[in-house]
Amino acid sequence: MTNKMEIADKLMSLEEAVKKFIKNGSQIALGGFTVMRNPMALAYEIIRQGIKDLHIVCHSHGQALDVLIGAGCVKRLEIAYGGAGRYAPTCIRFKKAIQNGEIEFEDYSNYQMSLRFLAGALNIPFIPTKSGLGSDLLNYEGFSKEVRKERKVAPKKFEIMQNPFIEEKDEVVLLPALNPDVTLIHAQYVGEDGTVRIKGLTFADIEQAKAADYVIVTCEEIVPRSYIRLDPDQNSLPPFFVDAIVKVPYGAHPTGCFAFYDYDPKHLNMYREYANDDNKFKEYLERWVYGVKTHEEYLNKVGTEMLIKIKANPIIGYAVGLDRR
């Protein structure tokens, strides 16, 4: 056996990780993408702890974002896309919250948000792109002047600048960097040395992690140092970027986790039905979030039958033949 002591000070429970790093008003970056590797167990714990006024920053997000908005944890949002694939082409509680004027929001594109995280990771104040020229992304500001004065909010949404290297007209869009208070990531593996391995697509998780002040990683498995260092080409983050590690098998359910489990079509369809109705949504939260103390209890409710159905073929990466209607 290898020595677990290396990460002893970082290993903690969901409850401890959320208590230690997430406060009312924190700016949180969500890892994953629409229906994949959402940090669901962390989102549920944030809701249980009654954390309020979060400022969420993400590119395309789905389930974790929607549950957090629906539970009233989110005050402010910078986002490119809120959707859960075919199960909710537009995230339902996200849609309602914007239509009812319940959250402050600012629209960017996926590439723009990814670049803003990259700029934050590189510790540069802004980053140029050509994306967005001519779009209403550059004609409408979502945040008011008052909001623009607040902590972690850029004083301007963007700036357009002439390319300083040439004489002819050549404009670029400058985007402000993002440095979230905390980035939440669900990964397949963390080594006993703290090295993180994300399998499948990494989305912008690595940029989001490097941009943040603190990083919480939940993972499917903690594996020996010798294993994670046998093939370092496969690794995603070195140990020193990670502040808290929580082992949470099925921690992304009902979203998927490559080579471990597929998204849960039954749960996502059921969620859509409950999220569409304010009262039923309260029932959903009661049953799946407030009514369970731990993620194990939550998984008991999902049931063995479904957990087996969504189990991924570890070689192919997904659950072959899963009924996804």
């Binding site: 994953g32 993408f33 629409t34 229906v35 994949m36 590119h59 395309s60 959707g83 859960a84 694939g85 075919r86 199960y87 996926n110 590439y111 990814s114 670049l115 990259l118 994306s131 499948g200 697509l201 990494t202 989305f203 912008a204 998780d205 690595i206 940029e207 998927g256 490559f258 597929d262 998204y263 991924a312 192919i316 990466g317 997904y318 072959v320 033949g321 996804r324």
Partner: peptide, 26 residues
């Protein structure tokens, strides 16, 4: 081999020549 239901579906990561991230894709 199976049709993906979202652009983040596990099925867009299977049998690929390369799995990367958003910045690489753009």
């Amino acid at each position: 081999d199976e049709i993906p239901m979202a652009v983040s579906d596990l099925r867009v990561m299977s049998g690929t020549c390369l799995n990367s991230g958003l910045i690489e894709a753009f």
